[in-house]
């Protein structure tokens, strides 16, 4: 019996149910992974400047350019030259102003130390004296008015901080917003 005939022996409704269960599980895995970081991740605050573009599928968002997006004067540990798309782990320590700053760049996950957090990133470009990285948290999706407000605040140089949760392997998830050092928004889990 060929594959088609065997498959057709299974009722269509049952096959549809299998498809739906697998697709729903895949979506739940996406949500669960994010929830786990938001619930159990290590919290840091990163300084940012937002601007407002639009995504065809996901609507308006504020593009976030973090102070750790471009790292100057820090050579990668191990001395090798980083290439575009290389994965890196950036060690963070809190600064005096409450925002966390990059202190080291590694190609492997460094051992954890007290008072230090690690965020995973990808090299966008590597210049002679600076490296530009992305962390997968560069978009803050919000209704148009909110996205534009964030952009305006950025233009007015109002200090904006993004509260980020980090998983044990450095994956980052946005969990809230701070303006002028005050938490103004706490991202609900559901």
């Amino acid at each position: 019996m060929n594959v088609s005939a065997r498959l057709n022996n299974i009722p269509f409704a049952l096959r549809t149910l299998i498809v739906l269960v697998v697709l729903t599980m895949a979506l739940s895995w996406m949500v669960g992974k994010r929830l786990s970081i938001l619930k159990n991740g290590y919290e840091v605050v990163l300084k940012t400047e937002p601007v407002d573009p639009r995504d065809l599928f996901r609507g308006h968002y504020a593009r976030l350019n973090y102070s750790i997006s471009t790292i100057r004067g820090i050579k990668p540990a191990g001395g090798g030259r980083l290439k575009k798309h290389d994965r890196v782990y950036v060690a963070l320590k809190p600064g005096d102003n409450g925002y966390w700053n990059a202190v080291a760049i590694n190609q492997d996950m460094p051992k954890s130390k007290p008072g230090m957090a690690v965020i995973r990133g990808e090299v966008r470009w590597n210049g002679d004296r600076m490296i530009n990285l992305r962390y997968g948290i560069e978009r803050y999706f919000a209704p148009k008015a909110e996205a534009l407000r964030l952009e305006r605040l950025g233009r007015e140089k109002v200090p904006i901080g993004v509260i980020v949760r980090l998983s044990s392997d450095g994956e980052a998830a946005i969990s809230g917003l701070m303006i002028n050092g005050k938490k103004i928004y706490d991202e609900p889990l559901f």
């Binding site: 697709l23 938001l38 599928f57 946005i174």
Partner: peptide, 17 residues
């Protein structure tokens, strides 16, 4: 709609990916 779901989750949890 499965694709729209992926986009919705990415939007709700600010996943740039």
């Amino acid at each position: 709609i499965f694709g729209a779901n992926i986009m919705l989750i990415a939007q709700m949890y600010h996943i740039e990916g």
